[in-house]
Nucleic acid binder design. Structure first.
Length: 562
RNA sequence: GCCCGAGUGGCUCAAUUGGAUAGAGCAACGGCCUUCGAAGCCGUGGGUUGCAGGUUCGAGUCCUGCCUCGGGCGCCA
């Protein structure tokens, strides 16, 4: 429909140019047609006259009038109006507007999907938590946003790889190992002998216990049997990492998030990629030695100060493997890479990009992309909470899922723009009432299932042919609004993906659910008249389909009953 | 001090990427269940979009300068 209207406007525009009323040199001819946000503005609106007024040397309303006069007849359009400063508003007739219902029912799960990506490879790196503790709410936000982003990109025709990167060898793993070793000797966090910077959470005790039991743990990317020897630091380290990776797998599984690749920092050393990267940077002439360390002149590429690559004592800083890792991503053919991380890591953005530029490997300056999410504050009864039974000092993701459920947790964490700090209200997420946006959306889906079942039970199962004959009967304002909303779905899917903003999906679903509940309360579906009943059922089923498609993009269930 | 992000009704957040009268939910108040699920609907009140300039047909959105809050500023990741 939008395409039809764009075409009408183009025809009118060409006609005016042909008769010399407009300068032919229209440099940018992108005709904007948008679904109107206000009913009074019709179904679709264009600002064409406003954007062209200046170059045409005409006032916008006058230009709009000439455009409207030049519009060819189209039976889908029932009325055209000029409003405000010069907007052209199109009113679509009921039968044509209703066609979207069958577009949706025929496309099914594919409605809203497109092939804009053309199979192009995209990699999304997210969560990337180090194996030193259970996942917390911040990781949960990253998981919810990252996973939804992946689903969105796939829906837009991209070939998506989900990757989880973690440090399995650095100083933090040393701390982990020392912490477990201390627990093995019966040392507790408050003892004077407790290692400095040790991990104090109770789960360390669990690791120690499992280790001495000789347990075998398997994670998505490894499997390790405990040596049960309290003196064997290498064995403790290997077991602890596996144990925590396993815990994180359980967290992710409970959250419904899966990864294609777990990428180890240690592998960058084993494959000599770190060494190769160093040499390449030195060859590029962007390095220098000072204070016994090797520096990279990142200030050549927008950083506010230079960064150390190799420490005085010989080891590399984390920043170097980061660069090596991203070079590897590039070499694997990912021209689009999106890193989803907490905003507390934002300082790595400039650094990594600078390092990649210094490689002079033909990597574009703004590569890779970053989606940084802000902090999450969790509240209960209006007060900040720190669920601490397992972790010691922060809200674990698993505790949250256990308490409020997977669907609600995901929906909440993904429904706000990543750039804004958010408050996660446990009371609201738990409430099984209208207050809860998750149930609000899911209930719309379940309601359609319910009425469809009722129709079947009464011996009046849905009849598509009957509905197809009655599209013009959808004349109620609420029905028109629903149709308008449904027709906008494909654009929402595009926009949410291109802007890397999955929260737009949640936003849309709330609006769709609202439109539907309002309609359902006011207009009866199960009427005696066959065609009217069937066309209303069809409308409901279209809503259900879009609701299901949308919830799927968020990784949330679409239940048949609540 | 420098860098990133945010500032929208009492609270939590949106706003079709520069569009028309800034919208939802919570909280407050008043209505709607003998008919498709009330996990729902309808209605009322509540705003100088942090402040001051600027850009233009048009600014919550873009630019400049301030203010406040969060995060970062390590030879940790």
């Amino acid at each position: 429909m939008k395409e039809t209207i764009t075409l009408l406007l183009r025809t009118a525009l060409d006609a005016l140019r042909a008769e010399g009323a407009l300068p032919v040199a229209g440099r940018d001819d992108n005709i904007q047609v948008e679904a109107a946000r206000d009913r009074a503005h019709g179904d679709y609106a264009s600002n064409l006259a406003l954007t062209l007024a200046k170059s045409a040397g005409m006032n916008p309303r006058e230009l709009a009038e000439r455009l409207v006069k030049a519009l060819p007849d189209a039976n889908a359009v029932s009325k055209v109006e000029i409003a405000g400063p010069g907007f052209i508003n199109f009113f679509v007739n009921a039968g044509a507007a209703g066609e979207v219902i069958f577009d949706i029912l025929e496309a099914g799960d594919d409605y809203g999907r497109n092939n804009d990506g053309g199979g192009q490879k995209v990699q999304v790196e997210f969560v990337s938590a180090n194996p030193t503790g259970p996942l917390h709410v911040g990781h949960g936000r990253g998981a919810a946003v990252g996973d939804s982003l992946c689903r969105l990109l796939a829906a837009n025709g991209y070939s998506v790889t989900r990757e989880f990167y973690y440090n399995d060898a650095g100083a933090q793993i040393d701390n982990l190992t020392l912490s477990v070793a201390a627990r093995l000797k019966g040392i507790e966090p408050n003892d004077p002998a407790w290692p400095k910077d040790g991990y104090r959470g109770e789960y360390i005790q669990d690791v120690a216990h499992a280790y001495m039991q000789g347990e075998t743990v398997s994670a998505d990317d490894r499997r390790v049997t405990a040596a049960a020897d309290p003196e064997d630091m290498a064995a403790i380290r290997a077991f602890a990492v596996a144990w925590l990776r396993h815990e994180q797998d359980l967290d992710l599984r409970a959250f419904g998030v899966e990864f294609d690749i777990f990428y180890l920092e240690s592998s960058l050393y084993e494959s000599a990629r770190v060494e190769a990267t160093v040499e390449q940077l030195i060859d590029g002439g962007h390095t220098y030695e000072a204070d016994g360390a090797l520096w990279l002149r990142t200030t050549d590429f927008g950083d506010d100060k230079d960064r150390v690559m190799r420490k005085r004592e010989g080891g590399y800083t984390y920043f170097l493997p980061d660069v090596a890792y991203h070079l590897d991503k590039w070499q694997r053919g990912f021209t689009t890479v999106i890193n989803e991380q907490g905003a507390d890591h934002h300082s790595t953005v400039t650094r990594v990009r600078a390092g990649l530029q210094a490689l002079e490997a033909g990597i574009p300056a703004g590569w890779p992309e970053y989606v940084l999410h802000q902090m999450v504050l969790v509240t209960r009864s209006g007060e900040e909470v720190k669920l601490s039974k397992r972790a010691g000092d922060y809200v674990t993701l698993r505790d949250l899922i256990d308490e409020v459920g997977r669907d609600a947790t995901r929906y909440f964490l993904v429904s706000r723009a990543a750039t804004s700090q958010m408050t996660f209200d446990i009371d609201l997420a738990r409430s099984q009432s209208s207050d809860n946006p998750v149930y609000y959306a899911q209930y719309a889906h379940a309601r359609v299932c319910s009425v469809e079942a009722k129709a079947a039970a009464e011996g009046k199962p849905f009849d598509a042919d009957s509905a197809a004959n009655a599209l013009h009967r959808l004349e109620d304002q609420r029905e028109k609004e629903l149709l308008n909303r449904l027709g906008r779905w494909p654009e929402v899917v595009k926009r949410a993906a291109s802007g890397r903003e999955p929260h737009q999906i949640a936003q849309y679903l709330q609006e769709l659910a609202s439109d539907f509940h309002s309609y359902y309360n006011a207009v009866r579906v199960m009427v005696d008249e066959d065609e009217l009943r069937n066309v209303r059922l069809a409308l409901g089923m279209a809503v259900r389909q879009v609701m299901r498609n949308g919830l799927d993009l968020l990784g949330v269930c679409a239940p048949r009953e609540m």
